[in-house]
Design a protein around this nucleic acid. Structure first.
Lengths: 102, 102
DNA sequence: TACTATAATCGTAATATTGCGATACACGTA
DNA sequence: TACGTGTATCGCAATATTACGATTATAGTA
C-alpha cells in the first residue's frame, strides 16, 4: 500500500518517537561509551520497561549490545546512526516552496 | 518525568511516524502547492482516515490548511518545517564516538 | 431555498503500545 | 554446585492508534 521506503522511514521514526527512548539514546551518547542499566536509575522506569525500550532501539539497529561479564553494554551503532541521519536529511532536504498558497 | 524537549521531539517524531502521513507530506511537497483530497484517490484510504492523518500533521503545525471555495487547500508551513528539520539536526549532530566498545 | 460537493467529526471495532510485576535465563563467584 | 547480580521475556491491564462508516457542517450552485 505504501512504498518500502515510506514504511521503513515510518518504522524508524516510530522507534525514536518516545521520550524514554530519546532519553536513552541521549544518555548513551553522553556517556560516550557503553552503559548497562544505569538507565533504570537514571530514568524512573522499571527494569522490564527499560529492557523493552532497548529492544525496540535494537530492532532498528541504532544501538547494539555486548555482553560484558554479568551485565550488558550498550552503545550506538555509528553506521546505522549515520544512515538514519542521512535518511532523515534526504526527507527534509526537500525544498519547500516559500511561495506557498496558504 | 522527561524534559520538555524530549517530550516535544517525541511527539513531533510520532506525528511523522506513519507511512500514510509520510506519503501525505511527500505528495504535498511534490505538488509544490496546496492539495485537497486528491489524497483520498492517491492513497487508498477512506476520507475519514485521511482527514484524521491531516489533523495530526496540523497538530504539530507542519502543514496548514486554507479553505478554498468548497474544498480545503493544504500546504507545508515552511517555518515549522525548517524548525523541525533543525531540531532533528540538533539531535543527530551528536558526534558518536567511532571507538565504541561494542 | 433546496441541492451538491468537500471536509471535519463522531462512534466504534480492531489492533498496537506502554508499563510493570513475576519469572526465566546467563554469567560470574563463593 | 548453589547463589547473587544483571537482563530478557512473559502475561496482563490500561491506554492509544488506526481505519472506517455514518453523520454533520460549510460553502458554492441551481
Amino acid at each position: 500500500m505504501f512504498t518500502d521506503k515510506q514504511n521503513h522511514l515510518a518504522s524508524v521514526l516510530k522507534a525514536l518517537a518516545h521520550p524514554a527512548r530519546i532519553a536513552i539514546l541521549q544518555h548513551i551518547i553522553k556517556q560516550n561509551a557503553c552503559i548497562c542499566n544505569d538507565l533504570v536509575d537514571e530514568l524512573g522506569l522499571a527494569q522490564a520497561t527499560i529492557s523493552q525500550h532497548l529492544k525496540e532501539l535494537k530492532n532498528i539497529g541504532i544501538i547494539k549490545g555486548n555482553i560484558e561479564g554479568t551485565s550488558v553494554c550498550y552503545c550506538i551503532d555509528e553506521k546505522v546512526w549515520l544512515k538514519i541521519k542521512s535518511q532523515l536529511n534526504t526527507f527534509f532536504v526537500e525544498q519547500v516552496n516559500a511561495s506557498d498558497c496558504c
